[in-house]
């Protein structure tokens, strides 16, 4: 699923590791979500929304095409 995670993270100058620590998951999970390879659960999506102070639909867009950036 397309998401703005990478942009939101970059705006705050957070590394994937920092965001992962805030969420209580591994850096790989953050990386997989950003790349569109993995859709987070509802609790994790809510946690992301809370951390970035945005609505879930402002972060994730199921209708938009995913631009894959493989790590």
């Amino acid at each position: 699923m397309y998401n703005r995670l990478r942009v939101l993270r970059a705006e705050r100058r957070w590394s994937q590791a920092i965001l992962a620590e805030k969420l209580g998951v591994s850096r790989q999970t953050v990386n997989a979500i950003e790349a569109g390879r993995f859709d987070p659960s509802l609790p994790l999506a809510f946690a992301l929304a809370k951390i970035f102070d945005q609505k879930i639909e402002e972060i994730f867009d199921p209708d938009k095409e995913v631009v894959m950036k493989e790590s």
Binding site: A10, W14, S15, A17, S26, N31, S71
Partner: peptide, 24 residues
Amino acid sequence: NNVDDDEKFNRKWWLNPMDSKQLS
């Protein structure tokens, strides 16, 4: 902090497929 730290690690993955540093 490096914002795009998507680097792969150089550790020998077959010794331990999980990178212990990245998990709680």
